[in-house]
């Protein structure tokens, strides 16, 4: 005898669904339009956000709970093969089953962690699945978009997903430059609230006319394409710009700009130059040497993706004080120039 789930009170239906896993929720939603509507009607969504990870040209849709990772829908052949190998070694061998999503047949394999695997997927199928998940989970926020080791398997970009908003962008390319179109879309169309990391070459022709990043953290390596105009318009709390083609005068202008502003969100800037550069001209600032009664010797660069847990030795740094009492330090440590603002001073 079956169990007439849809005849339960709505609160109970929602309680049942909140105990279902990703693969079960998806399969339940595919049973009928009514089932899908029931899932969409849940106020407290089972997942907080979704991450799009592109690895070797194939994406994975990683669901996230409050702070931990949830199940995932894998499309990456490497991941699929890993699971297949595991299942061959004694566990019950998994089979691919057909699911019809948006009128398109898709091969799906379930695994122990309630994740899903699909292989040999094409661009159209992928878009159908992405749109289906977005719809099913009521426009679940995209917390992170990451793309690493780009290989042109599928031509997938943030634009392909119509991404307009996300918390974090992470690019780490090797062997080929990040395509210009993709960077343009990324910087001009996506509102990124937390951090942007572009770790990879860009083409020599790449340039942005205007860009006003207001993300919390910005990591660009190499940052050869960052012009003076862009640099001075950056509105980020933490910035790590490596191999800039800027001049020391630009760095000084940035510090002067902070000095004459009321900006309270800026925390630190760390940058390295390409080639030789002139030394910093301290005559533009009223500076003081380190006084242990005023501030600590070491500055904690915590939070940053690249420098988590690292500290800067500010022994030789020169301190400058703004009108409102905020204390900043300009210095050079391990081949990088830095300008940091202290949170606590005496």
């Amino acid at each position: 005898m079956g169990f007439p789930i849809l005849k339960l009170p709505l609160l109970a239906i929602h309680a049942v669904i909140s105990n279902l896993q990703l693969d079960e929720i998806i399969d339940f939603s595919l049973c009928s339009s009514k089932c899908k509507r029931v899932i969409k009607s849940i106020k407290k969504q089972p997942y907080k956000s979704m991450e799009i990870r592109i690895f070797f040209g194939y994406p994975d849709f990683q669901f996230m709970y409050e702070k931990t990772k949830g199940p995932c829908w894998y499309f990456n052949n490497l991941e699929v093969e890993k699971v297949l190998r595991k299942s061959k070694r004694g566990e019950k061998r998994k089979k691919y089953e057909i699911r019809k999503i948006g009128g398109i047949k898709i091969k799906v394999m379930k695994c122990e962690e309630n994740s899903l695997f699909s292989k040999q997927i094409n661009e159209l199928q992928l878009k159908v699945i992405f749109d289906f998940l977005l719809d099913l989970f009521n426009n679940i926020p995209i917390c992170r978009y990451s793309s690493t080791l780009r290989v042109n398997q599928l031509n997938i970009t943030p634009e392909y997903f119509g991404l307009k908003k996300c918390s974090s962008i992470f690019y780490s390319f090797q062997g080929m430059p990040v395509p210009d179109d993709e960077l343009h879309y990324l910087f001009e169309n996506i509102q990124v609230s937390e951090d942007i990391t572009i770790n990879g070459e860009v083409s020599d022709e790449f340039q942005l006319n205007t860009a006003k990043f207001s993300t919390n953290e910005l990591n660009i390596r190499p940052a050869t394409w960052i012009t003076r105009d862009i640099f001075l318009s950056l509105n980020c709390s933490r910035m790590c710009l490596d191999y800039v083609t800027l001049t020391m005068n630009d760095f000084q202008s940035f510090v002067l700009q902070w000095l004459s502003s009321e900006n309270t969100s800026f925390v630190w800037l760390q940058m390295s130059f390409t080639g030789n550069h002139e030394p910093i001209d301290f005559s533009q600032f009223q500076t003081q040497q380190w006084n242990p009664k005023v501030r600590e010797r070491y500055y904690d660069l915590s939070y940053s993706i690249f420098s988590r847990g690292r500290k800067i030795d500010c022994l030789d740094g020169r301190d400058i004080r703004r009108k409102d009492g905020k204390l900043g330090t300009i210095g050079y440590f391990r081949r990088k120039h830095y300008f940091v603002v202290w949170n606590q001073t005496n």
Binding site: G2, F3, I5, A12, V16, S18, D27, F28, C31, S32
Partner: peptide
């Protein structure tokens, strides 16, 4: 409700329709 949710484990949509008496569209 957890007990009812456990009935879905490892089921395909066709099996879920039978387990939960779900009518098709």
């Amino acid at each position: 409700c957890k007990k009812v949710a456990n009935m879905a484990q490892g089921k395909t949509p066709a099996q879920l329709r039978r387990v939960y008496l779900l009518p098709s569209d």
